[in-house]
Structures are given as structure tokens and as C-alpha cells.
């Protein structure tokens, strides 16, 4: 029998080891798996490389994971947002590494990692500072930069609905990086608002096929990051 449902967020993240590469879904708050990130803070794995579009807000979720000094390197496209305070401070002090990647290149690197494609060429960043040190090749008279696929050890994902096979549906723009991150991690850990019986998700509508998912945990009422930030809440 296949049953990917686990009973707690702590059980869900228990395999994450020191030095792991961890993908974290979300675009700002939308799609950010706050409960799984907080469980990772409790779990305590260190020296992580985290791949996420942003660096978290306030003192909750990804920002709290960084503040707790569990992240040695961030790979992201936009590390500062209006409420981002933790990462900028550590970065200015030279206490956290940053690999800045254009957003589309980041998405494609993750997708390729999941699809078994080691590298690809793209025109994005040609002639800019982000091209430096990268191979440039011409195809049909146009220049392209070589970028590498990104494989990870773990992915932490928020979705709307899951079944015990790990088939997933998302909610609106909270989908963002979720589906491609599920594909490129060796072990994908998902928090779902709703868990349904097999067959209740229309096979025509499945967004992430269950083969890409390792564990699912039920979080019926995920916290609102915006609300926690407006209350000045700190997870640490």
C-alpha cells in the first residue's frame, strides 16, 4: 500500500540533514510552507543551502530559519522585499552567501534538475554582470549563456489539496515554484490544506503527479504570514 501521509510536521522534516540543499516554495507569502519551515527550525539541521525566490519576511518562516543561522547560502532572484529585514542584515555583515539568479533562469534550472537535464543555454543575462564567469555560445547569430540544472535533496512545498498518492492541486498564484520544486528534489515534503480520498482529484486536473512527492502532512489552517508580521510575531 502506498500512503505518503505522515502525522506531523516534525515527522515530515525529520530526515533533513546538515548541509542539505532545500527548495522552499513560495513567491512572497503566497505558497510559502510556513509550518514546514518552522518544523525545520525545531529540527535544527544546519549549513543548509536554500533555494527560494525571496528570503522571507519579518521574523517568521524562511526569515526565521535564516535568523536561526541554519542557512549558509541562499539561491534566489529577489532577496529583498518590503518586509525583509533578516537577510539584508546578515548579508551586509558577510555572514550569509548569496547566489543571485534571474527569476526565469532560476525556474528553468529547477525544472531541468527535475527533468534530468544537466544544463541549458538562455539569452537571459547576456551582456550583464550576471553573465560573468559563465560560458557564452552563439546560436544562429545570437548569444546565449550556459546555466546548470539545479538538483536538491529536499523540497518544502505548500499546496491546497493532496491525496495519499501525493497527487497535488494548488491555489491560485500560490502555485508558483511548487510543481517544479516537487520534481527536482530527491525528497519532496508537502503541507496540504485538504487531504482527499483517491479519485476525488480529477485525473485531468492533477497539477503535480504523485510520483514527485515523498511525504504529505495535513495543515488545515496554515498561519497567515502577513498577519503574523502585522502582529510583530517572531518564531524564534
Amino acid at each position: 500500500m502506498i500512503n505518503k501521509i505522515v502525522n506531523s510536521v516534525h515527522e515530515a522534516v525529520s530526515d533533513i540533514f546538515d548541509g542539505a540543499i532545500v527548495l522552499i516554495s513560495g513567491f512572497g507569502e503566497a505558497g510559502s510552507p510556513i509550518e514546514l519551515i518552522h518544523a525545520l527550525i525545531d529540527h535544527g539541521a544546519k549549513n543548509l543551502t536554500v533555494v527560494s525566490n525571496n528570503t522571507g519576511n519579518g521574523h517568521v518562516g524562511l526569515a526565521a530559519l535564516i535568523e536561526n543561522r541554519q542557512v549558509k547560502k541562499m539561491i534566489c532572484s529577489f532577496p529583498r522585499t518590503a518586509d525583509s529585514v533578516v537577510f539584508p542584515e546578515l548579508y551586509r555583515k558577510g555572514e550569509i552567501e548569496l547566489e543571485l539568479v534571474p527569476q526565469g533562469t532560476l525556474a528553468e534550472r529547477i525544472r531541468c534538475g527535475g527533468a534530468g537535464i544537466p544544463a541549458f543555454y538562455t539569452p537571459t543575462s547576456v551582456g550583464t554582470p550576471l553573465e560573468k564567469g559563465k560560458e557564452v555560445r552563439e546560436f544562429n547569430g545570437k548569444k546565449y549563456v550556459l546555466e546548470y540544472g539545479l538538483k536538491a535533496d529536499f523540497a518544502l512545498i505548500k499546496c491546497e489539496t493532496a491525496d495519499r498518492y501525493g497527487n497535488l492541486l494548488y491555489n491560485k498564484t500560490a502555485r508558483n515554484f511548487g510543481p517544479i520544486m516537487c520534481m527536482s528534489a530527491n525528497s519532496t515534503i508537502v503541507q496540504a490544506k485538504h487531504i482527499v480520498e483517491l479519485g476525488e482529484i480529477n485525473p485531468e486536473s492533477v497539477v503535480t503527479p504523485g510520483i514527485f512527492v515523498k511525504k504529505v502532512v495535513h495543515i488545515l489552517h496554515p498561519v497567515s504570514e502577513n498577519k503574523l508580521i502585522s502582529e510583530n510575531f517572531s518564531y524564534l
Binding site: 532572484s77 529577489f78 532577496p79 529583498r80 537577510f87 539584508p88 548579508y91 551586509r92 548569496l98 543571485l100 539568479v101 534571474p102 527569476q103 526565469g104 533562469t105 537571459t124 543575462s125 550583464t128 550576471l130
Partner: peptide, 11 residues
């Protein structure tokens, strides 16, 4: 001392 951030502009 600025935090570099590119987002989707280059794409």
C-alpha cells in the same frame, strides 16, 4: 552596500 535583486527583469 545594496542588496542585489534582479527578479524577472533580465528574462
Amino acid at each position: 552596500d545594496a542588496i542585489p535583486a534582479v527578479g524577472g527583469a533580465m528574462d
